[in-house]
């Protein structure tokens, strides 16, 4: 399995991007935070009439809400990152990785025909890379302390 080749051939859809959760731009940041917490995700999409208008991430929470001293009753529309960079499910994984690296993004919305069908996270990409070398990555020596005597027979 050549990983360089697979990055060009395998499509984003193969990674089964996680379900996107969305909020309305007029909902409050508190709603978005509650949703992110409940679903254990780092970002939610901000959608208006089925169209993505922005993305609200952990970084936005830190940068545009908490450090500015804004209350959590602020609307998401004011604090989101508008017009996020997206990928198509048919795009190669390599293209998604490049977009993540260029923009320093950890999440890309996966959009097909103008509709959000998933979220691709950097963790999922790392897991995909690890799947190429499972033995190398997962067979690791034990960490001390070691048992003083050998066990068993």
């Amino acid at each position: 399995m050549d990983i360089g080749r697979n990055l060009k051939i395998d499509s984003v859809a193969r990674l089964h991007p996680t379900t996107p959760w969305h909020v309305h731009p007029m909902q409050t940041v508190a709603d978005a935070v509650a949703l992110m917490r409940a679903k254990s995700v780092g970002c939610v999409l901000v959608c208006l009439a089925g169209k993505i208008v922005g993305i609200f991430t952990e970084r936005d929470l830190m940068r545009r809400v908490m450090s500015q001293g804004k209350p959590l009753s602020t609307s998401v529309g004011e604090c989101m990152t508008p017009g996020p960079v997206t990928v198509d499910p048919k795009d190669p994984i390599g293209a998604a990785v490049r977009r993540m690296e260029e923009g320093g993004y950890r999440h890309l919305p996966v959009v097909h025909d103008g509709k959000a069908v998933g979220i691709l996270s950097v963790k999922r990409i790392v897991h995909y890379l690890v799947e190429h070398f499972p033995a190398t990555v997962h067979n690791q020596p034990p960490t001390p302390p070691f048992p003083p005597k050998r066990e068993g027979a």
Partner: peptide, 8 residues
């Protein structure tokens, strides 16, 4: 941690 434990 900020998202899960601090905000709100």
């Amino acid at each position: 941690d900020l998202l899960k434990k601090v905000a709100g």
